[in-house]
Deep mutational scan, measured.
Amino acid sequence: KTSLNPNDLGPLPPGWEERIHLDGRTFYIDHNSKITQWEDPRLQNPAITGP
């Protein structure tokens, strides 16, 4: 199984920011909706992941 390299996905969507949590995990901030999440928003785009 090959793992996706986030660098291959291009930039984050407008308004998003990638940060490192105190425990070392990466999380994502959506400044548009004022939410945070652990999942990379680029992986949730149907145009990238397919049907």
Score class of each variant (00 low, 15 high):
K1N: 12
K1T: 06
K1H: 01
K1R: 10
K1I: 12
T2R: 05
T2M: 09
T2H: 05
T2V: 05
T2P: 05
S3D: 11
S3N: 15
S3V: 05
S3K: 07
S3L: 05
S3Y: 12
S3I: 09
S3T: 09
L4H: 07
L4K: 15
L4N: 06
L4F: 13
L4G: 10
N5G: 09
N5R: 06
N5K: 07
N5L: 08
N5F: 10
P6M: 15
P6G: 14
P6E: 14
P6V: 14
N7P: 12
N7V: 10
D8W: 04
D8A: 10
D8S: 10
D8R: 13
D8E: 13
D8F: 06
L9S: 07
L9M: 05
L9F: 07
G10T: 10
G10M: 03
G10C: 06
G10Q: 06
G10P: 05
P11V: 08
P11M: 07
P11G: 08
L12Q: 01
L12P: 02
P13I: 00
P13S: 02
P13E: 03
P13C: 01
P13N: 04
P13H: 00
P14K: 12
P14I: 07
P14A: 14
P14Y: 12
G15K: 04
W16L: 03
W16P: 05
W16M: 04
W16G: 08
W16S: 04
W16I: 02
E17I: 04
E17Q: 05
E17M: 01
E17T: 02
E17S: 07
E17A: 01
E17R: 01
E17Y: 00
E18Y: 04
E18C: 07
E18R: 09
E18P: 03
E18W: 00
E18T: 07
E18D: 02
E18H: 02
R19G: 09
R19K: 08
R19V: 09
R19F: 06
R19Q: 05
R19E: 08
R19N: 05
I20M: 10
I20C: 15
I20E: 14
H21N: 07
H21W: 12
H21M: 10
H21K: 09
H21L: 06
H21C: 14
H21T: 15
L22G: 15
L22E: 15
L22Q: 15
D23R: 02
D23S: 13
D23E: 02
D23I: 01
G24K: 03
G24D: 01
G24R: 03
G24Q: 01
G24P: 00
R25F: 03
R25W: 01
T26P: 12
T26G: 03
T26I: 10
T26L: 10
F27I: 09
F27Y: 15
F27N: 08
Y28S: 04
Y28A: 04
Y28P: 07
Y28H: 02
Y28V: 01
Y28G: 04
I29Q: 09
I29N: 05
D30W: 02
D30S: 06
D30M: 01
H31M: 13
H31G: 07
H31F: 03
H31I: 13
H31A: 09
N32V: 12
N32D: 10
N32L: 09
N32C: 06
S33C: 10
S33P: 02
S33K: 14
S33V: 05
K34R: 10
K34L: 06
K34I: 00
K34S: 08
K34C: 08
K34T: 08
I35A: 14
I35G: 06
I35Y: 06
I35N: 12
I35H: 14
T36G: 08
T36C: 15
T36I: 04
T36A: 05
T36H: 14
T36E: 10
Q37M: 07
Q37C: 08
Q37G: 01
Q37R: 02
Q37I: 01
Q37D: 03
W38H: 10
W38L: 09
W38T: 14
W38E: 14
E39Y: 04
E39H: 10
E39C: 08
E39R: 08
E39L: 06
D40I: 02
D40R: 07
D40V: 01
D40H: 09
P41S: 01
R42T: 01
R42K: 05
R42V: 01
R42H: 02
L43D: 10
L43Y: 08
L43T: 12
L43C: 11
L43A: 13
L43W: 06
Q44E: 14
Q44A: 13
Q44P: 10
Q44M: 12
Q44K: 15
Q44D: 14
Q44V: 10
N45P: 11
N45A: 13
N45W: 06
N45T: 13
N45H: 12
N45M: 09
P46C: 11
P46F: 07
P46Y: 06
P46E: 05
P46W: 07
P46G: 14
A47I: 09
A47C: 12
A47N: 14
A47T: 12
A47K: 08
A47H: 15
A47R: 13
I48V: 15
T49P: 10
T49G: 12
T49Y: 06
T49N: 06
T49S: 11
G50F: 15
G50R: 09
G50W: 10
G50Q: 05
G50K: 15
P51G: 15
P51W: 00
